[in-house]
Amino acid sequence: MDEKITQMLIEEAAEARKQSFSPFSGFAVGAALMTAEGAVYRGCNIECSGLTASNCAERTAFFKAVSEGERNFKAIAIVGGPSDRDVESLCYPCGICRQVMAQFCDLDSFRIIVASDRAHWEECTLRELLPRAFRRHCMAEGSKES
């Protein structure tokens, strides 16, 4: 992916992180999801006292975009760490978020960028993070390969 786009998505994710509501874990995460057409949807993690009702930043961004009619996605950037200090390490999406990505994204072309800041980041495909993704066509076709 183009370096300028990557840097812009990292900045957007860092800005989204500022909106995190994470009073229980103290772990703030921001995400910036880019559609195939170039629109960007931000998301942050939102915690509830009943933790199973909480929502990750990545899913917040996806659900905002899907609720607006978007279905084609190009990339997501994720920045996360303890809310009381600067981000120092990379924060990968959880399994549930990876599964949501698999619902809406191509395993080989969708890019996932995890960053601590503009200078420290990694990029991978969804297939690299979720090599044996459960996909709807697996049930319909009995496929072993997704």
Rank of each mutant, 00 (worst) to 15 (best):
M1G: 14
D2I: 10
E3L: 14
K4W: 11
I5N: 11
T6Q: 15
Q7I: 10
E11S: 11
E12I: 03
A13C: 07
A14V: 07
A16P: 09
R17E: 06
K18G: 02
K18S: 07
Q19I: 05
Q19N: 12
S20P: 03
S22A: 12
S22L: 04
S25Y: 02
G26C: 04
A28Q: 03
V29M: 00
G30R: 03
A31E: 00
E37T: 15
G38W: 01
G38A: 00
V40C: 01
V40Q: 00
G43P: 08
N45Y: 07
I46C: 11
S49H: 13
T52F: 15
S54E: 03
N55F: 08
C56G: 13
A57T: 04
E58Y: 01
R59E: 07
R59P: 04
T60S: 06
T60L: 03
F62P: 05
K64C: 04
E68L: 04
E68V: 02
R71S: 14
N72H: 14
F73K: 03
K74P: 04
A75T: 00
A75F: 01
I76K: 00
I76Y: 03
I78M: 01
I78R: 00
V79T: 06
G80N: 03
S83R: 08
D84L: 06
D84F: 06
D86Y: 14
V87C: 04
C91P: 02
C91K: 06
P93H: 02
C97R: 00
Q99E: 12
Q99H: 04
V100E: 09
A102W: 02
A102I: 02
A102E: 03
A102P: 03
Q103N: 14
C105F: 06
D106E: 13
D106Y: 09
L107H: 07
L107D: 14
D108R: 12
D108L: 01
D108I: 05
R111Q: 04
I112M: 03
I113C: 08
V114G: 09
V114S: 12
S116R: 09
A119V: 11
A119Y: 11
A119C: 11
A119L: 12
A119E: 15
W121E: 10
T125G: 05
R127P: 06
P131R: 12
F134G: 13
R135E: 12
R135I: 00
R135C: 11
R136E: 13
R136W: 09
C138G: 11
C138H: 13
M139D: 14
A140K: 15
E141F: 15
G142N: 14
S143Y: 08
